[in-house]
């Protein structure tokens, strides 16, 4: 197992996720932030030890099977058995264990040193509620996407109020479970700007497979500006079609579950849609983010993402769906 190169072409053409990413976007082997960068050398060290031992055992078995008689006699001695079966494992494992403890201690220290930047992510069936706390202490809600300032330590509080989920962005850190009744805290630190993909790693029933999200790391200044914009109310419809979409949104009761800040839609059951148009995906990284995808999602989300808790709106005519799509796409 050599260190894998990106053997797969970056096609970016699947129906599932035409938008973001390429091979490596969710890979623990391409670390791009704090904890993941610390784990990487430990991983390769242990993988190297494993491969060396595997090679040794293979050679020994080959010698034992068909080697010269003298060599085979050596292999059947008691000291060989004690040396290879007891002393060698103790030496190698002690080394790995100490190395592992040191990385653990570094991780624990990093966790305790998290700064004032706090994001709360709540696992839902089957999406992510994301709440940022601005420096002024205001809460800004978003969903299914996490933005990070490069170079800053961000404390991510992980909650769940239904079943157990697990928050995992392989390029940035190891996973940490979201457990009802508990608050787990993860420190993320992006080392460079870029887009990464995360996914729920604890089986949470139903649409567990379609519970992913994107992490967008951006330069700190850009991040601050973005967060300021994110804290503002939604854009108002401009075109006639967008206005029609807004009216349909209200008429169909979408506001019972979704919030659009600055409007009367204040529902809390589903994702906040205030700036949904600016996100990289909809349906927790299930569809790309454009007007057509919104229309599809509204009409047949039960096919796109079975068992998800939003009802499908098949009663809407194609032009109505188009109008709704245009409205939602506008909410950047």
């Amino acid at each position: 197992m050599a260190r894998p190169a990106r053997v797969l072409a970056c096609t970016c053409s699947s129906a599932m996720l035409p938008l973001a990413g390429c091979a490596g976007i969710q890979s623990a082997l391409v670390p791009k932030g704090g904890e993941a960068l610390d784990i990487d050398p430990l991983f390769w060290t242990s993988a190297g030890v494993a491969m060396a031992v595997m090679a040794m055992v293979t050679i020994l078995v080959a010698v034992a099977l068909r080697g010269p008689v003298r060599w085979r006699q050596v292999l059947s001695r008691e000291w060989f058995l004690t040396g290879g079966g007891i002393v060698l494992p103790i030496v190698v494992l002690t080394f790995l264990l100490v190395y592992g403890f040191l990385v653990m201690q570094a991780g624990a220290t990093r966790m305790s040193a998290a700064g004032e930047h706090v994001v709360t992510v709540t696992g839902k069936r089957w999406w992510w509620r994301v709440v940022y706390r601005t420096p002024e202490g205001r809460e800004v809600e978003s969903a299914n996407e996490l933005r990070l300032p490069v170079g800053r330590k961000v404390m991510v509080r992980l909650l769940s109020d239904d079943v157990i989920h697990s928050f995992w962005v392989p390029q940035l850190a190891g996973k940490l479970d979201m457990i009802p009744g508990r608050i787990n805290v993860l420190t993320l630190e992006a080392a460079e700007p870029g887009i990464s993909r995360g996914q729920c790693a604890e089986y949470c029933g139903g649409a567990h497979a379609l519970m992913a999200f994107h992490v967008v790391a951006m330069p700190a200044a850009e991040y601050d500006a973005w967060l300021a914009r994110e804290a503002m109310p939604a854009r108002v419809p401009a075109s006639a079609e967008e206005e029609r979409g807004a009216a349909l949104f209200t008429a169909n009761g979408c506001g019972a579950c979704h919030t659009i800040a600055g409007t009367r839609a204040q529902g809390r059951l589903g994702p906040d849609l205030t700036h949904v148009g600016s996100r990289r995906s909809i349906g927790a990284a299930t569809l790309p983010n454009d007007a057509a995808a919104f229309a599809r999602w509204i009409a047949e989300n039960d096919h796109i993402k079975p068992e998800n808790l939003m009802p499908p709106y098949r009663n809407l005519a194609p032009d109505e769906l188009r109008a709704l799509g245009a409205f939602l796409d506008l909410l950047e």
């Binding site: 970056c10 699947s14 599932m16 035409p18 390429c22 969710q26 890979s27 082997l29 497979a209």
Partner: peptide, 17 residues
């Protein structure tokens, strides 16, 4: 798994390797 594919998923996207 190292490339990030979780267990217990019934489907997966095509462009993550």
């Amino acid at each position: 798994g190292l490339r990030g594919m979780p267990r217990r998923v019934w489907t997966y996207p095509g462009d993550v390797g």
